[in-house]
């Protein structure tokens, strides 16, 4: 889309086109699918700006937006400043500053830095291929597994003892404290038999 057309769309959204220019643009919107797509996206952005859309958007929304923005060069320093661009300078400056803040946060998400948590770890630097990421459907795979719950109490008791060791090394245990030990304490062969 040309920068002239972006200008026109922007002005149209701001009600700054005169009657004939508006009619001409509406005709173009009716006949140009790509332009209509831009129009719809601009309206969405404007709605977000006005807080008309919940910030909790569908997954992938932001990625799509970034992709689209990267394809649409933004002029931060227009050569001329016609009437309909009168706010572009200060707004663009503010926008750039805000964007840089956003990008900085994106690039450096907060990490807890308490001294008590500044621990060395033996985190593996061993590269292991990752299995494909399922978005869903593992439950059906899980259902297909033969979960042959052993009737041998010794097997279950053995796993229960291993769980005591596992609890100590489970990251979530930092939050849940002793609660996971309930599995050991509450283990009752009479009840847990399959």
């Amino acid at each position: 889309m040309s920068s002239d057309m972006k200008e026109k769309l922007s002005a149209f959204m701001d009600g700054e086109l005169d009657h004939s220019e508006s009619l001409e643009l509406i005709d173009q919107l009716n006949s140009d699918d790509e332009l209509r797509g831009h129009w719809q996206r601009y309206n969405t952005y404007a709605s977000v700006l006005k807080d008309e859309v919940s910030p909790v958007l569908s997954s992938g929304f932001s990625e799509k937006v970034i992709q689209k923005l990267s394809q649409e060069p933004v002029q931060f320093a227009p050569a001329a400043m016609p009437k309909r661009r009168r706010l572009a300078g200060p707004m663009a400056g503010l926008a750039v500053a805000a964007s840089l803040m956003g990008i900085a946060i994106l690039l450096q998400k907060p990490v807890i830095n308490d001294a008590s948590e500044d621990q060395t770890s033996n985190v593996a630097q061993v590269s292991v291929p990752a299995l494909p990421l399922p978005k869903s459907g593992l439950s059906s795979t899980e259902a297909g597994l033969i979960v042959a719950n052993s009737k041998n109490e010794n097997v279950r008791e053995r796993i229960n003892r291993l769980l005591v060791e596992h609890n100590e090394y489970n990251p979530a245990g930092d939050m849940t404290g002793m609660l996971p030990y309930s599995r050991f304490v509450g283990y009752n062969p009479r009840v847990d038999k399959p």
Partner: peptide, 19 residues
């Protein structure tokens, strides 16, 4: 280019809200 400025602010606010 008012719109471009609006858009950048909108996205910055979005990212900030996520962060």
């Amino acid at each position: 280019m008012k719109l471009a400025g609006h858009l950048l602010i909108a996205f910055s606010l979005l990212w900030l809200s996520y962060a």
